[in-house]
Nucleic acid binder design. Sequence first.
DNA 1: TTGACAAACAGACATTTGTCTGTTTTAATA
DNA 2: TATTAAAACAGACAAATGTCTGTTTGTCAA
Lengths: 218, 218
Amino acid sequence: MPTPNRQRSGETRNEIFAFVRDRIAAGASPTVREVQREFGFRAVQSAQQHLTALVADGRLIKEAGVARGYRLPNGRLPEGGDGASHIGPVGAVRYIPRLGRVQAGALQEAIEDPDGWLPAAAGNPADELFALTVRGESMRDAGILPGDTVVVRRQDTARDGEIVVALVEGEATVKRLKLSAGRIVLQPENDDFAPIEIAPDTEIRILGRVVEVRRRLV
Amino acid sequence: MPTPNRQRSGETRNEIFAFVRDRIAAGASPTVREVQREFGFRAVQSAQQHLTALVADGRLIKEAGVARGYRLPNGRLPEGGDGASHIGPVGAVRYIPRLGRVQAGALQEAIEDPDGWLPAAAGNPADELFALTVRGESMRDAGILPGDTVVVRRQDTARDGEIVVALVEGEATVKRLKLSAGRIVLQPENDDFAPIEIAPDTEIRILGRVVEVRRRLV
DNA sequence: TTGACAAACAGACATTTGTCTGTTTTAATA
DNA sequence: TATTAAAACAGACAAATGTCTGTTTGTCAA
């Protein structure tokens, strides 16, 4: 059998796209010459031509006048408003610091010295986000289990019914916030646990609101 | 008050680190001259010096001979083996395609035409991952609720007790797999639902194993 | 005051990377 | 076969970027 027809199949172009996409996802756009080398082209222009075509097709975006300037266009967002906004523009990622034990007043220090980082879609840069590991079964019926990671948006206040991280007796805890007629209650979602009623003069400190839950299965 | 002491506080260096970190997270490392411009240095070397120092401190990594070659070092992993391995090397991200409705046999097509993309720590490149939105309450007691996104590792087989995505009556469904004495059962985690027993001659197709659950709160 | 040192400045040069012009090869098709 | 268009090649130049040598300035502390 002679050489299979690759000349007009567009297969090489697809492979180049996949290569560039993966390199961008891995941290940085490749250069034209890196594409050239990867595919064994003897001329820079061979790679350049494919890349230009991919940009013309809208499969890639090029930042003009910038080395390693290839970017991925935005991922199409699901139409259904199911709150799946953690799917964002591909390529725009932010890293959320994952904190160890948070104790009284030490939030800022904990944020500056995280255990590690979680990638997430970029979202609103003004939001201060951090992540915590859940301890205990108290939110089981809300689908938040021990070992789960919660992503928290830093804020001092919250509204009735929102799940918050609050500082109770010097330790961070996840509960649902109940506000009614001047009473403040931190409500577990598990009948085995008692609600924590906040006396009017008690100091309660809300660290933020839980915006995402992640669980890694073995 | 005279000019506060910035000369030796290291504050500028911290700001430069934050700038570089955020730029890397946003998609690409800045150049030395971009740092220079951002901080208003009149000499390239001023920025260069800070960057070199950050590399010496281990706060950044530099790929030699590469434009825009600054990278973030790996996030420190939590020592506790709590399975939180979705925290990976910072900067190494992969995008997981999020599929809409998956119907009989159409998995490959669905993967090539995703609804959107989820960022995740890179992990093992050999793993084929995709994501699905959960419908129904059948896995409620396992902490998997309607609207949750499950990340699935593509595989044809699974072990007893693992949560899998299987194709049942032409539609993808999430259940716990129970294998015992030649019987195959897809077990819901909710008493309101009945287990699905797979008759020996029935065609059952396992699409993959659930490796992560994500839930976005309003 | 002076020495030590970090930080910033000045200017240059080397390398990497992007982009251009024009030619040749390959495969499909009239 | 002749035509055509995509794909690949060849060689060059320009712009972006990395890196170097040496000097000056600001702050601390002896």
